[in-house]
């Protein structure tokens, strides 16, 4: 009630019109709200126009709908679709990326695990982490490499004439495929391989490594690794670099 009175006292009257003093001039000057109802005029031109529109719409529906036949009439009668282009002589094999490219790309992804110590370019960190580039361990046989990634290394390790003491963690938790990919990557990317070697480590080779050395739970030491001949390779067949399949005739 009080509220209403105070609003009332805010009003004054100018020539019969009420005005709100508190700055609500916009509310005072506006016209009353429009209400439903009112003129029912229907313009004759609108009616004529509506007739034309109805005729147009009927003609349109008749012309384009194919009389609601949904079997195979996609377009309105009389429309001739363009002939479909014929694809000929496309060599699907040529379009495919060689297997080795994909294998290396995946290897590069796995290598992100190694970047923190061995660096993106495989240079290592002088005094702390050994390089992969120019390392006799990478250039040599695959068996030692397989052992290193499976169980890691502890204690002093001589690489390219320097001694490194930081431990290398074991990566045996990664599956054979990933380990094979990353070994292929570091060997082909950073290694200086003997003439004629592709540097590929296959999944089968990695599987063999795991069977032979995978039971080891503690990291290797330099002595353990040197007990294996430097050129010992993991068993596996040579594969075609384009297809990833074993080379026929082996």
């Amino acid at each position: 009630m009080d509220d209403k009175n105070s609003t009332e006292s805010n009003l004054d009257y100018q020539g019969g019109r009420a005005a709100v003093r508190d700055g609500h001039d916009s509310v005072r000057r506006e016209k009353p709200e429009p209400v439903a109802g009112g003129s029912n005029k229907v313009l004759i031109s609108w009616v004529v126009g509506a007739g034309i529109v109805l005729v147009m719409a009927g003609g349109y529906l008749g012309g384009y709908s194919n009389f609601f036949d949904s079997s195979d009439s996609y377009i309105y009668p009389g429309y001739v679709a363009a002939a479909r282009p014929v694809v000929e002589g496309v060599d699907t094999d040529a379009e495919q990326e060689p297997w080795i490219e994909v294998w290396m790309k995946d290897g590069k992804k796995v290598y992100t695990n190694c970047i923190a110590c061995h660096q993106a370019a495989g240079t290592g960190t002088p005094g702390l982490f050994p390089p992969l580039k120019g390392s006799e361990w990478v250039d040599g046989g695959t068996e030692r490499l397989g052992m290193i990634v499976l169980s890691g290394v502890l204690g002093p390790l001589n690489v390219s004439g320097s001694t490194y003491n930081q431990p290398m963690p074991a990566w045996g938790a990664l599956n054979d495929e990933k380990l094979a990919q990353v070994l292929t990557y570091i060997r082909r990317e950073f290694g200086e391989l003997p003439e004629g070697q592709s540097g590929v480590v296959t999944k089968e080779m990695m599987k063999a490594a795991r069977e032979k050395h995978g039971k080891r739970t503690s990291p290797w030491t330099e002595a353990d690794l040197l007990a294996i001949p430097g050129d010992a390779e993991l068993p596996g067949v040579e594969v075609d670099l384009n297809t990833g399949q074993p080379v026929a005739g082996e």
Partner: peptide, 22 residues
């Protein structure tokens, strides 16, 4: 319109669009 739909589907839509002139 003219797409790979049964022709009555775009036809009905087109008709509705023309009737929208009302």
């Amino acid at each position: 319109l003219g797409g790979p739909f049964p022709s009555w589907m775009p036809a009905i839509s087109g008709t509705a669009i023309i009737l929208m002139l009302l």
